[in-house]
C-alpha cells in the first residue's frame, strides 16, 4: 500500500474513533470555534474605535484574517502527531515503535490523529471570509479564486513546516517546545492584520525570515487588485506562496537530522 493510501487509512481510522463520540466532538468543535473567533472581535473593536488604518477598511482587513486562519486550521488538522511528538512519542519512548515500522516516520505522525475539532477555527474563518466578501465587496473572478487557493496551499505548507520544526525540537529538549507557538499562533496573530501596518523591521522578518507575508499578504493584495503600498512589483504578488513550500522543504531536512540524533542518543 503506497504512502497516500496508507495516510488515507490512518485518517479514516481517526475519524471513525471520533465519530463514536459525536456530542463530545461537536462540543469541542464549537468550543474551538468560539475560542478562535474572539480574535476577530478584537480586530473589529479596534477598527470600530480608531477607523481605517494603513489604507485598509475593516472588511479588507477581515480578508487577511480569514485567509491566514484558513491556512492555519488546515495545517493544524494535518499535524497533530507533530504537535504532540515531544510528549507522546519522545518522552514515552513510543517513537521507538514508529522507527520499528518500515515506513517514513513523518507519514506515521501525519496520520496519528486528525482532530475534527480543529475545523472550529476553519468555520469561523470561512464565516469571516463571507463577511469580508460582502463588506468590501470582493470580486471573486477566476484569477482571485486561483490566487486564494494557491495562497492557502503555500500557507498550509508554511505552517506544516513550522510544526515539523517544533517536533524536530523535541529531539533535543522535550520541554521548551512552547517557543514555537511564537511562530504558529504568533504568526496567525501577526498576519491577521495587513502587514503594512507594522514597522519595517518586522515586515522584513515576516517576509524573509518566516515568509508569512509571502503567503498571507502579497496574495491578498492580488485578490483585492491593489498594488502593494510598500512597492513590491505586481508580478511578484501571485508567486509568493512558493516561499511556503521552500520553508517546508527546509523543515524536513531538519527533521531528518533530528531522527539521526535520536538514533544516537536513544530516548
Amino acid at each position: 500500500m503506497n504512502a497516500l493510501a496508507l495516510y488515507g487509512r490512518y485518517v479514516v481510522i481517526s475519524l471513525r474513533a471520533q465519530a463514536q463520540y459525536p456530542a463530545a466532538t461537536l462540543l469541542l468543535t464549537v468550543g474551538h470555534c468560539a475560542a478562535t473567533a474572539i480574535e476577530i472581535l478584537g480586530v473589529f473593536a479596534l477598527f470600530d474605535r480608531f477607523g481605517p488604518i494603513g489604507g485598509w477598511s475593516f472588511g479588507e482587513a477581515a480578508l487577511f484574517y480569514a485567509l491566514v486562519n484558513i491556512m492555519f486550521s488546515i495545517a493544524d488538522l494535518l499535524t497533530r502527531g507533530f504537535e504532540v511528538f515531544g510528549a507522546d512519542f519522545v518522552r514515552t519512548g513510543a517513537f521507538d515503535r514508529v522507527l520499528l515500522r518500515p515506513r517514513a516516520a513523518a507519514l506515521q505522525l501525519a496520520g496519528h490523529e486528525v482532530r475534527l475539532s480543529r475545523l472550529g477555527r476553519l468555520l469561523q474563518a470561512l464565516a469571516v471570509l463571507i463577511l469580508a466578501s460582502r463588506l468590501v465587496p470582493i470580486d471573486w473572478d477566476a484569477a482571485a479564486v486561483a490566487t486564494a487557493v494557491w495562497a492557502v496551499a503555500g500557507g498550509v505548507a508554511l505552517f506544516v513546516g513550522i510544526l515539523v520544526l517544533q517536533a524536530t525540537l523535541a529531539f533535543w529538549t522535550v520541554e521548551s517546545l512552547e517557543v514555537v507557538n511564537v511562530l504558529t499562533y504568533g504568526g496567525v496573530q501577526a498576519a491577521q492584520y495587513p502587514l503594512n501596518i507594522y514597522p519595517a523591521w518586522f515586515r522584513r522578518l515576516l517576509t524573509f525570515g518566516l515568509p508569512l507575508a509571502c503567503v498571507a499578504y502579497y496574495p491578498v493584495l492580488a485578490i483585492l487588485k491593489r498594488p502593494d503600498p510598500l512597492g513590491a512589483p505586481d508580478w511578484l504578488l501571485p508567486l509568493a506562496p512558493l516561499a511556503g513550500f521552500a520553508f517546508l522543504a527546509l523543515s524536513f531536512l531538519a527533521w531528518r537530522a533530528g531522527i539521526a540524533r535520536y538514533a544516537s542518543t536513544g530516548s
Binding site: M1, A5, L6, I13, R97, L100, R101, P102
Partner: peptide
C-alpha cells in the same frame, strides 16, 4: 519482528483485528 514486554505496539482504541489489518498495510 520485535515484542517489548508490557509495551504494546497495537493501537489502544482499535479492535485487535483492525490493528492487524493496519499492520498488514503498513508492512505491505
Amino acid at each position: 519482528g520485535v515484542v517489548f514486554g508490557q509495551r504494546s505496539q497495537l493501537w489502544w482504541d482499535l479492535p485487535v483485528l483492525d490493528g492487524f489489518d493496519l499492520l498488514a498495510d503498513i508492512y505491505r
